[in-house]
């Protein structure tokens, strides 16, 4: 016999609870601007003691049309992805790729140097490397 609760919980609220628990398990702490997963371009952020590295997965875009801006500790990547329109007589069977204008925003750590930024585009990935300020880098202190 299959056990059934007398008062089954609503499926959606169960999913909500599951998501909350997952977030707690994996320590996702969404920033004030949210995590906006599934946005375009997809982004990976990482860091070393010397720099902060941001990878934006934006394939098939002319790098000259990409707008990268740092203002008040916030990095913005914006642009437009234009896809060739399908011919009139053609049938579109699957349409999943992103098209149109996009803008994504990343809050940077306090110790980055907005004047030491390096951005390159390769294989459809925009890599932005921002150096951390010298004074903020860990230093070994000699004990006399």
């Amino acid at each position: 016999m299959i056990y059934r609760s007398l008062f089954p919980r609503d499926v959606l609220s169960e999913l909500d609870r599951l998501q909350r628990e997952l977030q707690q398990t994996f320590h996702f702490s969404p920033s004030i601007r949210g995590i906006a997963r599934g946005g375009f371009p997809a982004m990976n952020v990482g860091g070393t003691p010397q720099s902060v590295e941001i990878y934006a997965f934006a394939p098939g875009i002319d790098p000259a049309t990409l707008e990268v801006q740092i203002e008040k500790g916030v990095l913005t990547v914006a642009g437009e992805r234009k896809l060739p329109p399908a011919a009139e007589a053609a049938t579109v069977h699957i349409d999943e790729r992103f098209a149109g204008r996009f803008r994504r925003v990343v809050t940077l750590p306090d110790d980055v140097d907005a004047n030491a930024v390096d951005a390159r585009y390769r294989d459809g990935v925009l890599r932005i490397s921002i150096a951390r300020r010298q004074s903020a880098q860990p230093r070994r202190i000699n004990i006399q």
Binding site: P59, A90, V92, I94, E96, F98, D123, G124, V125
Partner: peptide, 22 residues
Amino acid sequence: PPVDVIEDASGITLYADLPGVP
């Protein structure tokens, strides 16, 4: 990877986004 698949009289064209792949 996300794809677009378009068919016309001569055949099928498939576009796929594979950023980061050399």
